[in-house]
Design a binder for these strands. Sequence first.
DNA 1: ATTTCAAATCTGATATATCAAGTTTCACAC
DNA 2: GTGTGAAACTTGATATATCAGATTTGAAAT
Lengths: 236, 236
Amino acid sequence: MTAANPPSSSQAEFEKIDASFQMTVRDHVHRAMRSAIISGRFQPGQKINERNLAEQFGVSTTPIKEALRQLETEGLVEALPRRGVVIRFSMSWAEEMILARAALESMIAHLAAKRIDEKGKAALSVIANRMKEATASGDADSLIALNETFHDHVHKSSQCGYLAKLIERQQFYDASIRRVIHLDPTERQKALDEHVAIADAITAGDTDKAERTMRDHVVRSGDTYLSIVFKKKGEV
Amino acid sequence: MTAANPPSSSQAEFEKIDASFQMTVRDHVHRAMRSAIISGRFQPGQKINERNLAEQFGVSTTPIKEALRQLETEGLVEALPRRGVVIRFSMSWAEEMILARAALESMIAHLAAKRIDEKGKAALSVIANRMKEATASGDADSLIALNETFHDHVHKSSQCGYLAKLIERQQFYDASIRRVIHLDPTERQKALDEHVAIADAITAGDTDKAERTMRDHVVRSGDTYLSIVFKKKGEV
DNA sequence: ATTTCAAATCTGATATATCAAGTTTCACAC
DNA sequence: GTGTGAAACTTGATATATCAGATTTGAAAT
């Protein structure tokens, strides 16, 4: 289904260019606002003024309104009809985002363990080995990238599109915070052990174990992020 | 915190009016479009024209664009920058929505079993008993309403706001389809047994069992809806 | 000082206009 | 017939204008 096929004509095969490559103003605003909200640059309950925002970004209110609708559907702001939008993000919201991600990732891990093929297993093993190396050498940047590769590969193996998309929206920490975590050797080791356990379970087709190890991993690492972002220890 | 408090002044106490009560054009469009998509009135991959839609609804394109952004974030349509939006809903998408709901509802059931108080247990028991009666008498309309009450009560007991909101978006069947299901005595009985099992587990504080019974319930009933909406049997 | 209420103001909701990227059409060259 | 490319057309993206609900203000009444 991938490279094994002979070219149907004498043309070389290329992957479709990702349409989301090009940036629109509303997406820029959406990302910027999302990042600002989840990094705490707005207070919970704070009101958002559309005209102000438009002026700050130097654009009209149209793309602002669209970005706000996206944030609203994501659950990061609440829209009160004819009264504007207010920020809805706090530590408890972040805790629930972790739980949501844990529930969804463990579901997808279950399916990955059920549906992964031999090629996928091999690829997963390669990723896991690279993680071992990067952990040993303390290469934080590689680990951050590999972490994303790992989870993306699990998503692909599960053959789930909707679930994968849904999971993307449950992330409330960004690159800079990840970096802090991955610079700690203890954290690095914990994450590695968990990733290896997940990979083993999926490769073995052990749906139950894949589910449990993934959930534990998401919850534990999520709590670590929580304690950094909100400067205190969270329990679930 | 509820009715036990004496009035702080001589004023009677009223619940705040739900701000989402008032309807805006964009919400009307959003709901109408969502309903149309999940009931299959658009083909997967079909292109949506903003101006056409605006004309059909008899409004300008502004609220249309906002509604489309909401649908996009929900995952029901995909926006290709500068090329418009296309429908992204099919049987496989619906299957995944069921799985997402199963994962999230079981997580919330787990928390409900952990956090519910005595008053909540009593209320849950009342709901379960009403369900038994309605099932015995075959009152489909009451059952539909009670079903919603039941799940809402579990959500409340879990004290989760974000998760509850997230779950609302994973519903792809509406009242008319529910009615078909609840008119079947066998289905009614199955649903009752499951609801009772869930209520028992939550009341007993058995987080594990609450999780499992809830998941099984959502998946099984989801498959029933699936087979009706898409006219064939789905397996997961 | 407190309450009342209408005018002024603010601001989100909607409509309309403009711009630019994407698509289609079709004449023309090979 | 096939490929090329420019013009015409379509349509999403953005900007601006208008409307109406919500909030604030302040003078008058008590």
